[in-house]
Design a protein around this nucleic acid. Sequence first.
DNA 1: TATTGTTATACTCTATAACTATA
DNA 2: TATAGTTATAGAGTATAACAATA
Lengths: 135, 135
Amino acid sequence: MDRADLGFLLARLLRRIQAGEEPILREAGLDMWGYVVMVGLDGSEAPTQAHLAERTGRDKTRLIRNLDRLEELGYVTRTPDPDDRRNRVVTLTTAGEKALRTCRKQIAAMEQELLAALDAEERVAFETALTKVVG
Amino acid sequence: MDRADLGFLLARLLRRIQAGEEPILREAGLDMWGYVVMVGLDGSEAPTQAHLAERTGRDKTRLIRNLDRLEELGYVTRTPDPDDRRNRVVTLTTAGEKALRTCRKQIAAMEQELLAALDAEERVAFETALTKVVG
DNA sequence: TATTGTTATACTCTATAACTATA
DNA sequence: TATAGTTATAGAGTATAACAATA
């Protein structure tokens, strides 16, 4: 019953998900962290890069390379805040929003495939529980 | 509903688990990979290090440092196979088994604490689903 | 002087390819 | 020559600290 502990099972599932995400993201020019950052920007722009770093759990110095790349792809913009020109507000472009929507849809589908061993009820129970614990 | 995708939720939970494991393992002189290797040895010794590497999903060259450390701690032994002296069979010592049991017990308890938001039924459903998907 | 964003440096982890010893 | 284990080298990823611009 407790032959494999929770951490092992979760790690295995997460690795599968990341493996499934990789080709989808690559298609859009993204890697995992680029995707994480874009998800962090979805819905609301970030007033400063430091805010965004905290929101995504990423170090502010590591975030910079990701933003460079995302800007290069035309997915985000960094515009100086007129009120405090040290700050740069980070915003998803419409192209970025579109790419994000596409990736999300494909990733959600891929995730559901990975849960194929579960029937509808079990699937809901699993996702509900997970959200309850950590969401 | 699909605000946070599965990968994000799993990653967050896994990070919490790893954070909870860290002090438990450190107490026993282990890091995460040392623990993974010992779990891989539990129940049956590994006939060769290459076998063990595959069993634990770890590269054979990276495994070596872990085994050096585990041997140093007295948790495992590497003994040449008389039939083919190139092979070294890796075995958990009794001290290793004891340390592993202790860690496992503490980690299982820590994991259950992390699931405190779930009632007994939900918890079973969650673990069952996870095992079904990936176990 | 303090803070935002950036760059630079060192350190760890990983991947690949040599090396040794046995076969 | 081929394989198990080991070591060495180079590369990627990360953390820390210094730096420039603005407040």
